[in-house]
Design a protein around this nucleic acid. Sequence first.
DNA 1: GGAGAAAGTCAAAATTTGGTCAAGAATAAA
DNA 2: TTTATTCTTGACCAAATTTTGACTTTCTCC
Lengths: 224, 224
Amino acid sequence: MAYRVLIVDDEPILTELLSSHLQDHGYMVSVANSSDEALAKLTTKPNLILLDINMPGMDGLELCKVIRNHIVCPILFLTARITEQDKVNGLRAGGDDYITKPFGLQELIARIEAHLRRDERNNRPPEVLTSQGLIINLSDRKVFWNEQELSFSKREFDIIEFLSSNPNQVFDKERIYEAVWGYDAEGDSSVIKEHIRKIRAKLMQASGSEYIETVWGMGYRWKK
Amino acid sequence: MAYRVLIVDDEPILTELLSSHLQDHGYMVSVANSSDEALAKLTTKPNLILLDINMPGMDGLELCKVIRNHIVCPILFLTARITEQDKVNGLRAGGDDYITKPFGLQELIARIEAHLRRDERNNRPPEVLTSQGLIINLSDRKVFWNEQELSFSKREFDIIEFLSSNPNQVFDKERIYEAVWGYDAEGDSSVIKEHIRKIRAKLMQASGSEYIETVWGMGYRWKK
DNA sequence: GGAGAAAGTCAAAATTTGGTCAAGAATAAA
DNA sequence: TTTATTCTTGACCAAATTTTGACTTTCTCC
């Protein structure tokens, strides 16, 4: 399966160039020309992010920190700044590498490969999760129970995905809200309650068993 | 716990310098001045390896490939070579990063931290405490006594977590209150008393033994 | 041994939290 | 546009937890 790379840079010429180069190497590329766009495109669940530091509005460092709250994947800074302090800042912000412009495309590819390979080594994320007869296909976002497909809305699936990807761990509502809705987590907890209810009802109706456990005062956990 | 870093370089002056700098930052450092020595020192199970490319005998690239057959940890190349092709080779050999000399010590530390942090993110072992048949799984917030799961409320678990994470230490009620409730609340110690009672009852019922000891006039301690 | 302080016990009150429901708002589909 | 679906909100209830206070027991020191 092709890796997804998200390029974040406000320079269209550069993103264009990078994009086509990466596509030539078999990557699926999405491009964001601003921080906001980048956050929105996190939903594509990139395997790796190329991040420019100099951008109008929220800059790359800030963005990096925010992204880190959502997903875990290699983040490579791409920038013209070169002082050591800048490098230090970038890495401390949660970045994994720092590549100064101008850089060779070959080197870039090599670095990307190194990071992806490393991720692969550490945690090969399964595209399909199963637990007791239930099959959750993350790539096509479908859920089955013994041949029968269950239908979930976007939010519902997002919650299922998040919880079932981290089985047995307890997440409080805020944490779930953050993970599913995004950075702006001023969420009313009743939204989660309601979605959990719907999910439970559908799962129970089909399979007759509980998958989501309530941990009183703490949150919810996916039983595995 | 301190991270272990293995430095591989045939230049004693450099290794000396690096070693003391890293030690200043709290790392446990071992040094190898040759490839053979490096392979021997893999038994120290380093969390990260700094690897010079230019060495007599087996060079860093070769060494890297060999190391990769043994352990999985970040490998950072440390070298004077700078051509893009070299970088590509290094990364393809299984390295995770490539730092060209001369480099700033600050940058080096930052990169090391970034890599370790990343490793941490990816495979964090579950935090589990055990004491005499009792298993306390901090990440899942579950407590077992021989297969049997014991259920504790949030506050109860928080107290157990705090005390059992610091076994044999005595904490007075205020200190416990501070640690668990999160703020300094003067006075009514009866809350703690009550929770301790509940915890003790549950633990006693299941295991038949006391885990929390009263130190008269001082506070409570988790017996280990 | 007895006074006083600290810890333990118990039950009831107060508070917090989660589940449920219905209805309005927002979004997507037709 | 209309229509259907999904998302969100707020209110209410029930359940579980947390806290409180009165009371008893235990310990320490004189």
